[in-house]
């Protein structure tokens, strides 16, 4: 039972750690790192779905009866990885500007400054 779903358990644990990092940490960079982990966990889930026991990478080979793993999840995750890095770049750019205007990248401090500004 455990080994049949081994990758899925790892996916769940990674996802939980990622989500917890995003939500519990006040440092904005740490939040972005958590978000990256959170997304990476989902990649593992999709890729696992496509795996066939004894299969090979989905690139046509000579010979009959070759078992190929499913290419579709790979395609989806290629897209998701791209989306992930785009989000990271945008988030980090915002963090740089936040540091320049607020002088800090700790959420707690920023929220306090925003309250004072009101």
């Amino acid at each position: 039972m455990f080994f049949e779903h081994y990758n899925y358990w790892i996916f769940v644990i990674l996802l939980m750690i990622g989500l917890y990092t995003v939500m519990s940490r006040s440092n904005l960079i740490k939040k972005m790192i958590g978000l990256s982990l959170f997304q990476t966990a989902v990649f593992l889930f999709y890729i696992t779905l496509g795996k066939i026991e004894g299969g090979t990478a989905p690139i046509l080979m000579e010979g009959e009866d070759v078992l190929y793993s499913n290419p579709l999840p790979h395609v989806l995750i290629l897209t998701a990885i791209v989306v992930g890095v785009a989000t990271t770049a945008l988030g980090l750019a915002l963090i740089v500007r936040i540091k320049e205007t607020f002088g800090t990248i700790e959420e707690d401090d920023i929220l306090r400054m925003e309250d004072e500004q009101k």
Partner: peptide, 8 residues
């Protein structure tokens, strides 16, 4: 790689 997703 282990999961046959070389492109990914």
């Amino acid at each position: 790689v282990n999961l046959d997703a070389v492109d990914v």
